[in-house]
């Protein structure tokens, strides 16, 4: 069994207007950052998981993301896995 640390980013689906991202972007533009574009606000989840290998860990986490961590109707998720030393 291997031990993994996962970094999961959940963000609104691209097709959905992210009003929070827009507002933050307007604030950035009105300070010193007019060059910033396409601001999206999301959530960051960190967790650890034991699995036989990276594929199995990814599979289980995808399932967890679809079930609870994200709402597939309005959100996308991205998983990054890092194997930890035993």
């Amino acid at each position: 069994m291997k031990h993994f640390k996962a970094s999961i980013t959940v963000s609104l689906r691209k097709s959905i207007l992210d009003v929070q991202g827009k507002t933050v972007e307007h604030a950035l533009h009105s300070t010193n950052f007019p060059m910033i574009k396409n601001t999206r606000i999301g959530k960051h989840v960190e967790l650890e998981i034991d699995a036989e290998n990276a594929e199995k860990a990814y599979e289980m986490l995808s399932d967890a993301c679809k079930t609870i961590i994200s709402n597939p109707i309005m959100e996308d998720y991205h998983i990054e896995l890092h194997e930890m030393e035993a």
């Binding site: 609104l12 009003v19 109707i73």
Partner: peptide
């Protein structure tokens, strides 16, 4: 109800925030 899938769709943040 939307989270549980008993009703379709989702409730997003109010457009005014």
């Amino acid at each position: 109800l939307t989270e549980s899938g008993l009703l379709p769709g989702a409730l997003l943040r109010n457009s005014s925030l």
